[in-house]
């Protein structure tokens, strides 16, 4: 069990990694990445049972995580590296030619910790369900986690998957929607209002939990713990997690503007000032 203070230190370092990685190649997606730092840090440092020292694709006996909104790869890579899946210094290769840290995550370059390619949206819930079904066949009582953007829910395949998981009682899956309310063209309400996601997922037959403070590490840890207690009861579990896009870097917060834009030199310095080095930069 890590203390909240220890997890906070990791959170701060991951934020630094994210802004440095996207700044270095002047591309990538800092906004959504920053919003999901607490979630991924909690998963990999507190919630999941996993072994980063010997990565096995089949993940038998381990909890698994699938990132469906693959564009927030910076946070995923940073958390995987700090968890020990691959050297932290490899973060410096992000999005560069011949890197294993492709713009969107892939298994193609054999990066430890990644089990599926993602980026084209809407596919990760189906994959997570498949992995969860394999666990049931293997009598493996581990849990499968997946993360989705709220804008991503506009993809139809998500609802095919949601219908299936409830109908077939896939109750060893915990999916989370990052409800930052933003997408590329503006707020989700401007682009395509989705109404009540709680009502929608409940109507589809999911056990729905709210996480009001998705950027508060203690709240995230406790909600994930609670979600785990909700597994094995005949329903897939959904966490509706409210976050702030760009969280932890003041000028990136409260707007969709930083979805896919990198900070310039001055903005980077400002962002780093707000998040002092804790575990050492890559």
């Amino acid at each position: 069990m890590a203390s909240t203070a220890e997890l906070e230190k990791i959170v701060t370092q991951v934020r630094r990694d994210i802004v440095r990685m996207v700044h270095a190649v002047n591309s990538g997606h800092p906004g959504g990445s920053l919003g999901c730092v607490e979630y991924l840090v909690s998963l990999y440092f507190e919630t999941m049972k996993h072994d980063s020292s010997k990565f096995k694709m089949d993940g038998i006996g381990e909890d698994l995580f699938f990132l469906s909104n693959g564009h927030i790869s910076p946070v995923f890579y940073s958390v995987l590296a700090h968890s020990g899946y691959f050297p932290v210094k490899e973060l410096s290769t992000f999005r560069k030619l011949n890197t294993r840290l492709q713009g969107h995550p892939t298994t193609h370059e054999h990066l430890e910790g990644v089990r599926i390619a993602s980026g084209s949206l809407g596919q990760g819930m189906s994959v997570a369900i498949g992995a969860a079904l394999a666990k049931k066949l293997n009598k493996d009582n581990s849990i499968v986690y997946s993360l989705h953007g709220d804008g991503e829910l506009q993809e139809g395949q998500i609802w095919e998957a949601a219908m299936y998981a409830a109908a077939k009682k896939v109750d060893n899956i915990i999916s989370t929607v990052d409800m930052n309310g933003q997408q590329i063209d503006g707020s989700t309400d401007q682009v395509l209002p989705m109404g009540s996601l709680r009502a929608k997922f409940e109507a589809f037959g999911w056990d729905v939990l709210d996480l009001e403070k998705g950027n508060d590490i203690a709240s995230v840890v406790s909600t994930l713990k609670k979600a785990k207690e909700h597994t094995g009861k005949g329903k897939p579990v959904m966490i509706l997690m409210k976050t702030e896009m760009g969280n932890g870097v003041d000028f990136m917060m409260g707007s969709h503007k930083w979805h896919g834009v990198a900070p310039n030199d001055e903005q980077l310095a400002q962002a780093l000032n707000q998040n002092t080095e804790t575990l050492g930069d890559y």
């Binding site: 694709m57 089949d58 993940g59 038998i60 698994l64 699938f66 089990r115 599926i116 809407g122 596919q123 990760g124 819930m125 189906s126 994959v127 997570a128 369900i129 498949g130 992995a131 969860a132 079904l133 394999a134 666990k135 066949l137 293997n138 493996d140 139809g156 395949q157 095919e160 998957a161 299936y164």
Partner: peptide, 13 residues
Amino acid sequence: ANMIGIAAGLTIG
């Protein structure tokens, strides 16, 4: 679409 995704996930186990 869901069928293909589930199939991909099943290979992981």
